[in-house]
Computed example of a mutant assay.
Amino acid sequence: MPVRHLLGRDGTQALTQLMQQQPLLAFDFDGTLAPIVMHPDEARVPVEVARQLEHLARRVPVAVITGRQVLDVRHRLGFAPTHIVGNHGAEDEFDGPDPGVVLTLKPFRERADRFEPLLSRVGASIEDKGASIAIHYRLAANPVEARAAIDELLSDLPAGVITEPGKRVVNVLVAGAPDKGDALARLCARYGTSAAFYAGDDTNDEPAFRRAAPGWVTARVGPRLDHSHAGFFLQEQAEMDEALRVMRQALGD
């Protein structure tokens, strides 16, 4: 079934009902809370969105579950969330990344170091985040050439290492490492809630959408995709502000 617009009648009704259950509110960062930008270092949550989240965090637990490292994303938020999970679910801000995950990536890390000059020449860059590695090519003048170089790097993966494509990025992960669905379930247990909201915009958000229990609300940010497991969609990141307003209104804030 095609997903429905979160700001339509069904979506606002679902949000209103969910907020009565004091849910966990969880969000991806890039493309969800913050607009996608050409230079990742420039990504920030818009001031008004941060203000809405700050108000919500006073009433219910608010979490950010991101592919970035925790220390990277924290200063980009503009508000203090209840909890941050980084590295696609594999790095908890209190517990840190699983040392076994970091160690499993060591052979690939060494291979990537050897490929770095080639990748640099085609406009790709390697971001080592400890519990995952991202290979970016958003700034490549020739994305096809850049992707070919990346594919060469990825042609011989060490045991236990997998890849996941994203928006002009390839994520290098450890098979079986906690994903965003695991993080969402873990946070619900930690904060003692049986209800949750999750919004994200990319492939690595699908585990969280799939993990959602009946009655939870999930939203894919961006063009509607019938194959997504999200229950609703937002047309673009700019609509997040209105969705947060609906949540606050449901709380009587």
Rank of each mutant, 00 (worst) to 15 (best):
L77Q: 07
G78D: 06
G78R: 01
G78K: 08
G78Y: 07
A80R: 15
A80C: 09
A80D: 15
P81A: 11
P81Q: 10
P81S: 10
P81F: 10
P81K: 11
T82L: 12
T82V: 12
T82N: 11
T82A: 12
T82C: 13
H83N: 07
H83C: 08
H83Y: 13
H83S: 06
H83M: 03
H83E: 11
H83F: 08
H83D: 09
I84Y: 10
V85G: 05
V85S: 08
V85P: 09
V85M: 13
V85W: 09
V85R: 11
V85Q: 13
G86N: 05
N87Y: 00
N87M: 08
H88F: 12
H88W: 10
H88A: 14
H88V: 14
G89A: 08
G89C: 07
G89T: 04
A90R: 01
A90G: 06
A90M: 02
A90Y: 00
E91A: 05
E91R: 00
E91Y: 04
E91H: 13
E91P: 00
D92K: 00
D92T: 03
D92S: 05
E93W: 14
E93Y: 01
E93D: 13
E93H: 06
E93S: 07
E93G: 01
E93N: 03
F94V: 14
F94L: 15
F94T: 14
F94W: 15
G96C: 08
G96K: 06
G96N: 09
G96A: 09
D98F: 02
D98G: 06
D98W: 06
P99I: 02
P99T: 01
P99E: 04
G100M: 06
G100H: 11
G100T: 09
G100A: 14
G100V: 02
V101R: 02
V101Q: 02
V102L: 07
L103Q: 15
L103C: 03
L103N: 07
T104K: 13
T104Y: 04
T104S: 12
T104Q: 15
T104W: 03
T104V: 12
T104P: 00
L105A: 05
L105R: 08
L105H: 10
L105V: 07
L105Y: 06
K106W: 10
P107I: 03
F108Y: 03
F108V: 00
F108K: 00
R109G: 01
R109I: 01
R109N: 01
R109H: 10
R109V: 02
R109P: 01
E110C: 00
E110G: 00
R111C: 06
R111D: 11
R111K: 14
R111M: 14
A112Q: 08
D113F: 09
D113C: 08
D113T: 11
D113Y: 07
R114S: 10
R114V: 03
